[in-house]
Structures are given as C-alpha cells and as structure tokens.
Simulated scan of single mutants.
Amino acid sequence: MKILFATYKTVPFVLMVLLNESTATYMVHFDLCIKNTTGRCTEINVESPPYLPNNVPIVFLIHGWTSDGSASWYDSTIDALWQTNDQYHFIKVDWSIRSKTIYITAQSAVDEAGIIIANFIVKLNNTYSVPFENILEIGFSLGAQVAGFAGKEVQKLTEKKISRIVALDPAGPLFDGRPKEEMLNPNDAENVVVIHTNGGFAGYVDDAGTIDIFPNGGSSQPGCTVALLRNILKLSETIGCSHSRSYKLFVEALLHPDKFQAKKCYNWIVYLISEDLCEDETVTLGDLTTTATGKYYLKTEDEPPYY
C-alpha cells in the first residue's frame, strides 16, 4: 500500500493508492491500436501486456473530464498520425471511473491515474525494453494533467524522462495557483508542448511547458465568442468550444503542417501590433520533433480546417 499525501492550495486531501495490477485493472483500462490489425484496437491485459517492438513510437492518448476511452479526438488523432507514420502504436487510456465524477473529485485523481500509467510504461520498458525516448503522451484537459503526473512518476521510478508530452489545453480550474511540482510542468518530459486555447476558463492560463503555443492568444477562439454574444446562457457551450479547439487544431496541424506556423513572441499584444516585433523563430503547431522553447503565437480561422 502506498500512501500519497498532498496539500494543494485549493483542495487538501489524503489519497490512498494501492499500486498493484488489480488497481490498474479497476481504475485504468488500456486499448492497443495498431494499423492493419483486425478490430483496430484491442484491450490490453496489464498483467501480461502484449509484445511491443522497441523501435516504434508508442503514443498514450489520455482523455479529460466526463470523457472515456471512446473520446472522439482519439480516433481523429490516430488517423492523422497514421498518415504521417503508419508505424505508430497507440494506447487509448480510459480512466473514466474517476473522470466521470464531479470535477473536484476527478481532478483530485489525476495523480493516481498518472501513477498507474507510469507503472505500465515502466513495465513495458522492463518487459520488452521499450525505451522511454519512444514514449509520447497526448492529453486533453484533465488528461494533460494526468500525463504530467505520469511523467513525474516515471522519473521517480527510473530517474529517466519520457520523450514528449503534448498537452492540449491542460485543465485550469483547481490547478491555477498550484506549485509547479503539483501540476503539469516543463520537467515532466524531455519536451513538454502545451497548446493553450481556453486559458483562464477551462484551460490553464500560464506557461506550463518547455514550449507554450497560444493560438489566437490562447484564451478564446474565433467563432466561439460570437456564439456567447448571441446567447449569454450558452456560456458552458462557448467555453467547451474554445477548450476543444485545442485538439481540433492539433489534428488539422498534423494533416496540414505548413498552415499552422506559430511565431515566437513576447506576448499576444506584441504579436497583434506587428509580427515584425517578434523573433524570427517559428514552429509548427503539430510538430512532434521540435525542441524549441518559449512562447509562440498564431492566428487561425473560425471554421474547419481553421486556416
């Protein structure tokens, strides 16, 4: 039995986690997706995980609050990445037993879910010599926070970092104001790419990665604010619009990398005044190899494909 004590500024709690195979089976489920296989995706038995080659990229997809392993963005992300490299192996994470609860309960379980994912990653390394540099985590909202905790735990267990985390508008409520070590932060992987689309509302407002990309300033997205002005009662729908735009933009950027070039700049205001006031460095929104650091900005359109 491992006892985790954590005191956050927002929510003090004591979290007890039984880190064994039955806990992982109970709380987190994993589906493996390999291209050109019958059934596309099959559930993994964590007690005896299937063989995974040690020379292909393995991507963990981690959903957010109220969602589960059938999240729509899972399949769109898989299809987009397979267009770039059909050797990708995907692991769909389902932690819906905790994510489909009230928000305060779900957010208090992100470290528990992350620890279970980390133990599975380490098991793959120990069993099949899957190198940590082949591991990529892509998480949306609370799932991005889960990804951060998984990265922390891998380091704790092995003193090594996974290769990359892509955090799609990481959850902000009850995370804003926390110490960096108690949330997603730049040290959770060799590269932590954060795409902000609803900062200050459903998303985290400040820097959280080695590189932070702010489409349209990172707070509200084109087309979403107009919907709010038409009907103030649709506030939650409007926030969801900007929040979910993170994974929609990411998928389009994977498919059309030349259309989503972000520019390094001091802030959004300077970028709006003139891009000439910004630095010369650019990065593609969906670049999964970049080692660039700092803040990057770009403009997008209000409807798919957003360019």
Rank of each mutant, 00 (worst) to 15 (best):
P170W: 05
P170L: 03
A171Y: 04
A171Q: 04
A171W: 06
G172E: 00
P173Q: 00
P173W: 06
L174K: 11
F175C: 00
D176T: 13
G177E: 05
G177T: 01
P179S: 15
M183P: 10
M183K: 14
L184G: 09
L184M: 07
N185Q: 07
P186M: 00
P186V: 01
P186W: 04
A189Y: 06
E190D: 12
E190Q: 09
E190G: 08
N191E: 12
V194D: 02
I195R: 07
I195D: 03
H196A: 03
N198M: 08
F201D: 10
Y204M: 08
V205P: 15
V205S: 13
D207K: 11
A208P: 07
G209K: 01
T210F: 02
T210C: 02
I211G: 00
I211N: 02
D212M: 08
F214M: 06
P215K: 00
P215T: 00
N216K: 02
N216E: 04
G218A: 02
S219N: 11
S219L: 11
S220M: 14
S220E: 14
Q221Y: 09
Q221V: 03
P222E: 05
G223L: 10
C224E: 10
T225I: 15
T225G: 13
T225A: 14
T225W: 15
V226P: 15
A227W: 15
R230Y: 13
N231W: 08
I232E: 09
L233D: 13
L233V: 10
L235V: 10
S236W: 14
E237L: 14
T238C: 10
T238P: 15
I239T: 14
C241F: 07
C241E: 09
S244H: 14
S244D: 12
R245H: 06
S246G: 05
S246F: 05
L249W: 03
L249C: 02
F250R: 02
V251C: 03
L255K: 15
H256I: 07
P257Y: 06
D258C: 11
K259R: 09
F260S: 04
Q261T: 08
Q261V: 09
A262S: 08
K263F: 04
K263I: 02
K264T: 03
C265H: 00
C265P: 00
C265R: 00
C265Y: 00
Y266S: 12
N267C: 02
N267W: 03
W268R: 04
W268N: 03
I269S: 08
V270N: 01
V270W: 00
Y271T: 00
Y271R: 00
L272P: 03
L272N: 11
E275S: 08
D276T: 12
